[in-house]
Amino acid sequence: MQQFFFSASKEFGAEVTRLLDFVHPATVALWNLRWQVQGFVAATGNATDDDLSDRFGSGSGFPARNLKKSCIETPWADQMEQFAQIVAANVIALYESWAEEVFKNQIGMHGMHHKWVQFPSRGINGRQEKGVRDVLADIHSAGVSPEMQSAFFPVYSASKWNSFAHLDEMVVLYRYHKEIRNSFMHSGGRASKLAEDAWSNASGLTRADVGGRRNPIVTQVTEGQRIAYTMEQASDLAAVIIRLIHSIDAELSSSAYGEQYFLNAWSSWSELAKYKALPSDPIQRDRRIAKICRKVGFVAPADPAAVIALGRSVGLVN
């Protein structure tokens, strides 16, 4: 999952991995804590909250308050919903942050593009403003680099997470989850009209539509009613955002913006002068170019000659 072009995409990959690496064992740990607390209370018959805190919180550095309420009185499904909300809120924030960093800072498109990639394209579900494919069309209209298309696009686009053909459908599913997130944050978990509309748009999506391994889990959302949300749904959301970023990141790699980003990274490399002269032997020359690309933060190119042509055009290699 870590094979990304932009540094913001790599940072996203690291952060979402860190989040999921925490949530998965934390979920299992909570399940086991519930069993242990229930067993301890059943065995002692009169365990107090202080007894439970001493028994299960000792050494953690954090007081274990209200374990009876958390582990006995609170249904497991309610706690899973809380975990699911944590995952959803965080992965959506990561996607929003990634979009702003890539489009505003690393590409330099200081418009609404970082917002529009969070919506399906114009004409989808009645949308009148630009959306994700419109953003990519704007970027491609500014120029596609033949060298980047030949050197890097084949590698980045080959990721198993690349689902470019399903961009709009994935964003429709993302909108469903985001409006649910918004309802939890702003309406106490009761669905807004936007959330109901987003559910209606996403309710017919299948595995074939979104390019996933299974049909997305989309439960009915009705305006004014409380929303039920599960860890399975949060997992769907995380997977679709990962695939969105892989797909968009790969597309951007072949753009004129991607070319400039690559050349900027190469030209600012501290060891640039050391590797400026390329070997005369073709095999050694290709290996040197692959090494340079990896050193400056990219993959070994599918076409080293294209990278050499780029480097020579701006004086980075002889």
Rank of each mutant, 00 (worst) to 15 (best):
W98C: 00
G123H: 09
Q106K: 01
S97F: 02
I124K: 02
Q128D: 14
H140M: 13
P146H: 00
V117S: 09
V144H: 01
V144Y: 06
G111H: 12
I124D: 07
E129D: 13
V135Q: 10
E147H: 03
W116S: 14
K104V: 10
H110G: 04
H140R: 13
A137T: 14
V102F: 04
I107D: 07
H114F: 15
D138P: 04
E147A: 02
S141R: 12
N125Q: 09
V132H: 03
G108Y: 12
V144T: 07
V102S: 05
V144G: 02
G143W: 05
G108R: 07
A142W: 11
F103W: 11
G126F: 12
N125I: 02
G108D: 11
V132M: 02
I107C: 04
S145V: 02
H140W: 13
G126P: 11
V144P: 03
D134R: 10
S121L: 02
I139G: 05
V144R: 03
R133G: 07
F103H: 09
V135E: 12
F103T: 08
Q118Y: 04
H114K: 10
P146K: 00
E129G: 12
H114Y: 15
M109P: 01
Q128H: 11
S97W: 04
V132Y: 00
E129V: 07
G126T: 11
K115E: 14
A142N: 13
H140E: 15
H140V: 12
N105R: 03
F103E: 12
D138N: 13
G108F: 11
Q106N: 00
S97E: 04
